[in-house]
Write a protein that binds this DNA or RNA. Structure first.
Lengths: 344, 344
DNA sequence: GAAGATCGTGCAATCGATTGCAAAAGGATC
DNA sequence: GATCCTTTTGCAATCGATTGCACGATCTTC
C-alpha cells in the first residue's frame, strides 16, 4: 500500500476532511463535547495525534474573545526610575510564571510607567491580556483603584489601604515588622531606626508593626529614626550614609528589604561601624543573597513562590467570574545571627 | 445640537460606518496606505481619535499570521532545577522587555524545561511567538541547533561553540576571563582557582581567557584548581567549602558569576580566611549587589541592558527577514579593591 | 463631448477556530 | 412500515481585521 503524499494538517478543516466529517464535528470532538459520539472522538483524536495537529490557539482565542495572557506589571520606585533590580522581583516572577504555565496562560511582562499607571490603559498591557497582576502598589494606590473599575480583572501584591476596590494579596507586613523589631528589642537594642518609604502601603504596615513592638517596650517612635530609604541599592547607600553622618547613630535598623539591609551593612561597615556589634540590622524578604552574605542577615521571610501562585489563582478566578477575596500570607522571622549588644 | 447617543466604536466596521466609507477604506486609511486620499485619512484618523478607537491587535495579528510576541527563555542549570535567581537575569530581562516594548512587541516569559529544550516545540513558547530569545545555552547547544532549524527565528545569548546555526549574541568572555585572571596575577597571585562549569560555552570561553593569562605568566592550569561550581548560591557554597577543605588553598579565585563570587566570599570568610588578603576573588557580571557588598567585588562588567537591546534587534531582524549576524559585546574589568598580597 | 488615464473606494474572500440551529441517521415501539 | 425519540452530524454565521481585484469618479487631452 502506497502511502499517499502527506498533506500537512494545518487547520481543523484539514483534519475534518481527513476524517470525513465536518469542521464543526472535528471542533467538538477535540473539545470533548458531549454532542459527539465516543467513536468519532477517538477517531479524531487519533488523527490529530498522528498528524501532529493541535488547534491554533490564536484563532481559538480570537474567536472566544480572550487572549490567554496575563500581564505582570512591576511597580517601580517613583523617584528612581530604577529598573527592577531587586532579586525579590525575580523570585516572584518565577512563581507567577510557573503557575501561569500550569494553567496554560501566557505571561506578558511589563513594568509600570513610572509616574502614572493609568497610562497602561492605552497600551498593550491591558489590551492584550485577560487580567493583570501588579507587583507592588508603589504610591499609586488610587490609580490602581481606577484601573480596577475598568473591567479587566486585576490583582495586586501589596499592603493594606483604605477604600480599595481591587483584590489584594500580600504578606502579613504588620507581623513581619513587629517580629523584626521585637527581635532587636529582645537583644537589648533600644535606638532602632526604620529604613523605608512609608508612603508605600506594605512598608507602612511594617512600620506599624515596628511601632507596636516599640510600644510594648514602652518606647515611642522617634521621627528622626524613620528614614525614607529607597529600594535602589546605590541610593539606599547614599541615604544611609547621610543618615548616619548627620543624624546620630542608632544601635539597630529595621529595613524594608534585604537589598536595603545589605546596602546599610556595607555603608555602615565602610564608615567604620561593626555589624552587628555596633549596629544590628534586620532585613525583609529573605533573598538568597541575604541568607549567604556575611554576616548572614536576619530577615523576615515571605513565601514568594507561593505568593506567585496565589496571585495567579486570584486573577484566573476573577477571569472565570468567581468571587475572589483578599489573601494575607504569613511571614516568618528568620534569625541568622546574634544581634546581641554583648558579644553573644 | 443634541449629541446623539454615542454608540461605542468597537470595530473597523463601526468606524467605517461613522465615516460613511467601507471597512476596507477605513483599514487602509489607518494604515496610511498610499491608495487612500489624504482627506479621507485625516477624517478617519480624527474619528478614531475622537471615539478612542484602536485596531484590535489580536484580530490584526491573526489575519497577518503573526503574534507580535517574542518569547524569552531562561536556561536553567541542569542539575539544580533552580529557579532563576541570579540578578543578572533580571537586568537582562529588563533590557529585553524595554526594548521589545519600544518595537511594539510583547514579551512572553518562560524558562527552559530543564532536561530538554526541544520540549518547547510542543508548547506555547514556540507556537505563540514570532521569535525566541534564549538567555544562556546551558548544556543544550545541540538542541538549540535543532530548534533553529525549525523556522522560528531564534537568537541566543551565550558563548562561542562549533557548528552553530543560530544567531549568537554574547559578551567577550575570553577577554573577560583573561582580564580577571591577569589582574590577579599582576597582584602577585599565583595559585588561582577557576570556579564554574566549563561545559557551559560562556564559561568555557572565560576559562580559555584564564588559561591564556596564566600562560603569559608561564603558569599552566592545574586541573585540581578548576572547580565545577554551580550558579545556585546555596550549592555554590557547598562546593566552595568542599574544595577548600579537601583540595588545598588557592590564593585567588576567578568566578564565573558574581553570585558565585559572593558565595565564595562568605564561605571562605566563614572558614576563617580573610578576603582578599588570604584569598582574592574576582566575579563576573557586575551585579548591583556585588558593587556594594563589602568587600566590594572586583568583577567583569558586561553591558547587560545594551545586550538586551541587541538581542531584540537581532530577533526582530530575523523576523523581518533581514540577514542578521552574531554580535560580541565588549567586557570590562571593574577593579573595586586592591587584591594585593601585601596589605596595600 | 468622448476616449483614455489616473485616482479613490468598495466587494468579498480570507485567516482558523466555535456554536446555535436544523437536518439526517439510527432505534424503539406499535 | 410508519411514527416518534434520541443521538449524531453539518450548515453557516461570527470574531475583527487585511488585501487583490474590479468598478466608479475625476481629470486630461484631442
Amino acid at each position: 500500500m502506497i502511502k499517499p503524499t502527506a498533506k500537512p494538517v494545518r487547520s481543523l478543516q484539514d483534519l475534518a476532511d481527513l476524517a470525513g466529517v465536518s469542521r464543526a464535528t472535528a471542533s467538538r470532538a477535540l473539545n470533548d463535547s458531549p454532542l459527539i459520539s465516543e467513536k468519532t472522538k477517538q477517531k479524531l483524536r487519533g488523527l490529530a495525534e498522528k498528524h501532529n495537529y493541535t488547534v491554533n490557539q490564536q484563532a481559538r482565542d480570537f474567536r472566544l474573545r480572550r487572549t490567554s495572557v496575563v500581564s505582570v506589571v512591576f511597580m517601580l520606585d517613583v523617584k528612581s526610575d530604577q529598573h527592577m533590580s531587586d532579586p525579590f522581583f525575580l523570585e516572584m516572577l518565577g512563581g507567577i510564571a510557573d503557575s501561569l504555565a500550569d494553567h496554560d496562560y501566557d505571561l506578558l511582562l511589563a513594568h509600570a510607567p513610572v509616574p502614572d499607571v493609568l497610562a497602561l490603559r492605552e497600551g498593550r498591557v491591558l489590551k492584550h491580556s485577560d487580567g493583570v497582576i501588579f507587583v507592588g502598589q508603589g504610591e499609586q494606590h488610587s490609580m490602581l483603584n481606577e484601573l480596577a473599575g475598568d473591567g479587566t480583572p486585576i490583582v495586586v501584591w501589596g499592603g493594606p489601604v483604605q477604600d480599595r476596590n481591587y483584590v489584594l494579596v500580600g504578606g502579613d507586613n504588620a507581623s513581619g515588622g513587629y517580629a523584626a523589631t521585637r527581635h532587636l528589642l529582645e537583644q537589648g537594642r533600644r535606638t532602632i531606626a526604620f529604613f523605608g518609604n512609608t508612603r508605600n502601603p506594605e512598608i507602612s504596615a511594617r512600620y506599624s508593626g515596628y511601632e507596636k513592638a516599640l510600644a510594648e517596650f514602652e518606647l515611642r517612635p522617634d521621627e528622626s529614626l524613620k528614614v525614607d530609604v529607597p529600594f535602589d541599592m546605590r541610593r539606599a547607600q547614599e541615604v544611609a550614609r547621610e543618615f548616619l553622618e548627620n543624624r546620630g547613630q542608632p544601635d539597630a535598623v529595621v529595613c524594608a528589604s534585604d537589598v536595603m539591609a545589605l546596602a546599610a551593612i556595607s555603608t555602615f561597615t565602610n564608615l567604620g561601624f561593626k555589624v552587628p556589634e555596633d549596629i544590628a540590622i534586620v532585613g525583609y524578604d529573605d533573598i538568597d543573597l541575604a541568607a549567604y552574605s556575611s554576616p548572614a542577615l536576619t530577615t523576615v521571610r515571605q513565601n514568594i513562590r507561593w505568593a506567585g501562585r496565589v496571585l495567579v489563582e486570584s486573577v484566573l478566578g476573577q477571569i472565570n467570574g468567581d468571587a475572589v477575596s483578599d489573601t494575607m500570607l504569613a511571614s516568618e522571622l528568620i534569625v541568622r545571627q546574634s544581634s546581641g549588644v554583648s558579644g553573644e
